[in-house]
């Protein structure tokens, strides 16, 4: 297990940089991880990040399809907010494990 320091706090991460202990996450940490991904977080980013964290804590498997049911934003906007691999980037920034869904 590796450790990384964000916003002055040491957090446990795996070899890909995903959080092992989601409770260590804060909004300041999210802003710093986003910087590594060349992203500046807006309120809209935080809305979906909070939603992802809530779903993860509820034990749900996150998929790209589930974003459409989030009532926070649609999939198209999600791709625009986190260009490239949105679900992977967003979960990393949200301090939760990498999704294991194929959908």
């Amino acid at each position: 297990m590796a450790q990384k320091t964000y916003a002055g706090i040491a957090v446990d991460v795996n070899e890909e940089g995903y959080f092992i202990t989601p409770s260590q996450w804060t909004r300041e940490i999210a802003t710093e991880i986003a910087k590594e991904e060349s992203l500046t977080l807006t309120d809209q980013h935080f809305d979906i990040i909070e939603w992802l964290r809530k779903r993860h804590n509820a034990g749900e498997v996150l998929s790209i399809r589930s974003i459409n049911h989030s009532a926070v934003l649609d999939v198209k906007t999600f791709y625009q907010l986190f260009p490239g691999a949105p679900l992977k980037k967003a979960t990393k920034i949200a301090g939760i494990p990498k999704p294991v869904s194929c959908i």
Binding site: I64, R65, N68, D74, V75, K76, Y79, P86
Partner: peptide, 10 residues
């Protein structure tokens, strides 16, 4: 819906 997801992502 699958086609919708795929095109939404470009």
């Amino acid at each position: 819906e699958f086609l919708d997801l795929i095109t939404a992502g470009g």
